[in-house]
């Protein structure tokens, strides 16, 4: 295989990995902290993407879309958490079932409003065009996504590792009862993490729009990959989510390029292999 094609595919893989990381980070933190698999997470991703698309159509600005979509999704996440999920707090399976029903409603509503066709999202004009990498064209937008993803990722790690809030969240992941015993209102920590997670999913939805396009079914496609990331990386850890994202993102991209029929199977085999060696995930400390 020629080297230039491999390099281009590796770059594509990196772009996809970082987008996955934005999705999986929220999913993993919510899971680690609240013991809830948010199955509507993919719905938030697609919802964010569609809101972004509408903002671009209304106001003609990609950057405004990138700002507004996470805010709208975050607000929706806030309402859901405060009104419903909190009521089911001690019933974890019911919480998951709730998000499952939500995902079903979301999928139908999104199809209703935005239609069943593939919608393409224009990249911002400032980042349109392409650069030459090893003699091949590579879109500027994809390249800038690598930087964008890296910046958001670093910001998240700093937030979680070096701030007081981050310390509370990390403590909550290992033992939420102990944290509330220390006089910290764990309910608001839950709300904050849930809102942050849904906002990140919507952010990823907008950012990924110009690459993946938007269509019904994308919500679950991306959710499944994010779940695999969390299972592989271990839940409740950002570093695990990053490692898992890179493994899954690279496997998915390279698999699609070279063995399209079985790319999903390869990912599944990867997940099965990790479960054989480390049932808690590569960097996981906690049993789900």
């Amino acid at each position: 295989m020629p080297l230039d094609i491999l390099v281009i595919q590796l770059l594509n893989g990196l772009v996809f990995s970082l987008l996955l990381f934005l999705m999986a980070a929220g999913l993993s933190l919510i899971l680690g902290l609240m013991d809830v698999v948010n199955l509507a997470h993919g719905g938030f991703y697609l919802f964010g993407g569609y809101i972004g698309l509408t903002m671009i159509r209304w106001f003609g600005s990609f950057w405004l879309a990138l700002l507004i979509a996470p805010l709208v999704a975050g607000a929706l996440g806030l309402l859901l958490q405060v009104w419903f999920l909190r009521r089911l707090q001690s019933r974890h399976l019911d919480q998951v079932l709730f998000t499952f029903g939500l995902a079903l409603i979301a999928a139908d509503m999104l199809r209703w409003y935005w239609g069943a066709y593939v919608e393409s999202v224009p990249p911002p004009p400032e980042l349109d065009g392409s650069v030459l990498i090893m003699g091949r064209q590579f879109p500027v937008y994809r390249l800038s996504l690598i930087f964008f993803g890296a910046i958001v990722g670093v910001a998240l790690m700093v937030l979680l590792d070096y701030t007081r809030i981050g310390a509370i969240v990390r403590a909550g992941v290992s033992d939420s009862e102990l944290v509330s015993g220390l006089g910290i209102n764990i309910d608001w920590v839950f709300v904050g993490v849930f809102v942050l997670g849904t906002a990140l999913a919507a952010l990823a939805g907008v950012a990924a729009g110009p690459i993946t396009n938007l269509y019904p079914g994308l919500d679950f496609e991306i959710l499944i990959l994010a779940l695999v990331v969390v299972v592989i990386g271990g839940l409740g850890t950002l570093r695990g989510a990053l490692l898992g994202s890179i493994l899954v993102g690279m496997t998915e991209t390279l698999g699609k390029a070279f063995i399209p029929e079985f790319s999903l199977f390869v990912i599944f085999a990867l997940m099965a292999l990790v479960l054989l060696v480390r049932p808690r995930g590569l960097l996981g400390q906690k049993e789900a």
Partner: peptide, 15 residues
């Protein structure tokens, strides 16, 4: 079945 609880749920859905 190497996993339990929520990981089991995620694994079966992914499978």
């Amino acid at each position: 079945l190497r996993t339990s609880g929520l990981s089991f749920l995620m694994f079966t859905l992914a499978a």
